[in-house]
């Protein structure tokens, strides 16, 4: 009797099963719920109700705006850090990288609670709910914006910079013509990793915005308390927003230099 041998096909089965049960089936269930009413008859009422209600559209718009601001602020902070770290000749670079990644290892709810106390001490808790929410999001997602550009920049060959200065390029030129284009995949992957979750991370808006800030994730959660059909419709619409924004940022392209960008 020979020992069982696993072919490539067999090794795919666990993932295929996972994909079927936890990715495809839930999506179909959401789709089914979104387009049915309470008696499970086909209905487009949820769709109509969503787009005829200014408060629902406002929530989507607010979520996107919060997510956009979060992403831009994260990028403004993270990109220079990633650039400096990647280009510097420091010996203990990893220590600094580690310091940025370290907060990710501490429980997220604990960190947000700590921020809450800090804001209370400063006196802005309950005063500037939107600012607090965005701050919390930035704090939470910053590491996701540092690492991908950093890893892509590490891979840039030094000879490119040498060639640039040989040809008379100054610091700005080398940044604009080499660093920026070549780290684009890293930036895009960072943007996706920050933008998408910050539309739905309602723990932050609840804790730091005292539940006065409603983002789309909270909306879905609240509908699922009472009306799964409307909740599924909102989830589906969010899915479309996410799909479109990923399409816009070119996340579906499979270029070879994306490699290493996705950690």
């Amino acid at each position: 009797m020979k020992a069982p041998r696993f072919s490539r096909k067999t090794l795919c089965i666990p993932y295929a099963v996972f994909l079927l049960f936890f990715v495809i089936a839930p999506m179909l269930i959401i789709l089914a719920y979104a387009f049915t009413d309470r008696e499970m008859h086909f209905s487009v009422m949820n769709f109509v109700r969503f787009f005829s209600d200014p408060s629902k559209l406002s929530t989507i718009v607010y979520s996107i705006v919060i997510a956009l601001i979060t992403t831009v602020v994260c990028l403004l902070i993270a990109f220079p850090v990633a650039y400096i770290l990647a280009r510097s000749k420091m010996k203990k670079k990893f220590v600094i990288v580690m310091l940025f990644v370290l907060p990710m290892w501490i429980n997220f709810v604990l960190r947000i609670n700590a921020i809450r106390e800090l804001f209370n001490w400063i006196g802005i808790l309950g005063q500037a709910n939107y600012f607090n929410t965005v701050f919390g999001m930035v704090y939470d997602f910053l590491p996701f914006m540092i690492l991908p550009p950093y890893t892509t920049m590490l891979k840039i060959d030094d000879s490119l910079y040498e060639a640039c200065s040989d040809l008379g390029g100054n610091g700005f030129t080398s940044f604009a013509r080499i660093t920026l284009p070549l780290s684009k995949p890293g930036i895009l992957s960072g943007v996706t990793m920050v933008f998408l979750p910050s539309m739905t991370n309602y723990v932050v808006s609840d804790m730091l915005g005292n539940s006065k800030v409603t983002i789309i994730g909270k909306f879905i959660y609240e509908y699922f308390e009472s009306d799964w059909h409307m909740g599924s419709m909102v989830a589906l619409i969010l899915l479309i927003v996410v799909f479109v924004s990923t399409l816009l940022s070119g996340g579906f392209k499979s270029e070879e230099n994306v490699r290493g960008a996705n950690l």
Binding site: D53, K56, S58, Y62, S211, V213, T214, F219, E222
Partner: peptide
């Protein structure tokens, strides 16, 4: 629930 959604959302 509609009322609640109206109140919770910041209306534009």
């Amino acid at each position: 629930n509609e009322l609640w959604a109206h109140v919770k959302a910041e209306k534009l």
